[in-house]
């Protein structure tokens, strides 16, 4: 297929347009969707193309998320726009106690095919309530699938798969990546949920990462190459279900791993990866599992403070050197 270059924002739009065309039960609900095509312009053109199927709701996240859930339980396939990932707290009962559990609690009587689309991440001086990476809360809640793409092709392909999936999918997308462009195959493009991608082949070190940090890892890997460290980069893409086979395959080659995520260190997804690698791949390891993550404070506003808290390329380089020290 001929490839083209599109942005992550356009990838969202293409995925939704194609899926709404394909399936009349798909609709979008959230705040400020019609006047601006979503606050990041991520739904531009869709309100006009699918009148009545892009629903502007009041600032009422509990009922936006719970409403999406009720619609999913009664035959629809909603895509819920969370506005900012940070606002999940205002609908946490609907996500953690209802959405994640209703199928299980009812003995599998009902399916819950919905996507909760949540723009996350820092680096924009948006301060502590608009900058978080909250994926580990949801990974820790059985009943939810968690997806964190980094490239436009994955945004499109995973969003289409998430919409078609019969289970609830929490779809995190980093705000700094909206304008990021990349190649995308023409025509129908689906990326399966639960499959990691190797972004860079390497012999010496496996970087396990996802979301925006995959890009920072690429930069760090170039610097490390000059020092003679050949890093492999595994972009997990889906955190739950986790593609542990891919991790295991890479570690069997490199025997060293550096975990990199933007969420804060303590109790982050890296802790789960480190524990599982320790339990299942201990014999492969030639060095301790090492983590690079945000410092354990809320994300501060002032740019200098924020970049001190969030992992930078230099932090990843230092982390990699530590693995070899």
């Amino acid at each position: 297929m001929v490839e083209k270059e599109i942005s992550c924002t356009s990838a969202i739009c293409e995925a939704l347009s194609e899926e709404m065309q394909r399936d009349a039960s798909v609709f979008i609900i959230g705040e400020d969707l019609i006047a601006h095509g979503g606050i990041f312009g991520q739904f531009s053109g869709l309100p006009e193309k699918f009148p009545g199927r892009v629903i502007d709701a009041p600032i009422s996240e509990t009922c936006i998320v719970g409403g999406g859930l009720g619609a999913a339980m009664t035959g629809m396939r909603p895509v819920i726009d969370m506005h900012f990932a940070d606002f999940v707290t205002t609908a946490m009962d609907e996500i953690a106690n209802q959405m994640a559990k209703i199928r299980y609690m009812s003995g599998g009587q009902v399916k819950v095919p919905l996507v909760l689309w949540a723009p996350d991440g820092g680096g924009l001086s948006a301060a502590a309530q608009h900058s978080q990476s909250l994926e580990s809360w949801f990974v820790h809640t059985p009943g939810l699938k968690v997806v964190v793409p980094s490239e436009p092709a994955d945004v499109k392909g995973l969003l289409k798969s998430a919409i078609r999936d019969d289970d609830p999918v929490i779809f995190f997308q980093h705000k700094q990546l909206f304008a990021h462009t990349g190649p995308i195959p023409a025509g129908e493009h689906l990326v399966p949920i639960g499959k990691a991608a190797v972004r860079r082949d390497g012999r010496d070190l496996t970087m396990l990462t996802y979301g925006r940090m995959a890009h920072l890892c690429m930069e760090a890997a170039e610097q490390l190459a000059a020092e003679g460290i050949d890093a492999e980069i595994v972009d997990l893409r889906t955190l739950k279900p986790l593609d542990f086979a891919c991790i295991s395959h890479s570690l069997a080659k490199t025997h060293r791993t550096l975990i990199v995520h933007e969420a804060c260190l303590t109790g982050g997804f890296g802790a789960e990866l480190a524990a599982r690698i320790g339990e299942e791949l201990f014999d492969e390891l030639d060095a301790p599992v090492t983590r690079v993550a945000a410092r354990d404070v809320p994300i501060p506003f002032s740019p200098g403070l924020e970049s001190y808290v969030l992992p930078q390329v230099e932090d990843i380089v230092l982390g990699a050197r530590k693995v070899f020290s």
């Binding site: 509990t62 009922c63 719970g66 859930l69 339980m73 009664t74 009962d93 209802q98 609690m105 009812s106």
Partner: peptide, 27 residues
Amino acid sequence: ADFSAGILGANGVVGGGFPIMVGAGLS
């Protein structure tokens, strides 16, 4: 719950049924 009888479920959270029913109404 008995989805075949339109019963979308009891709920252990007081007030948990409201948002779900809003969604059923939208649907």
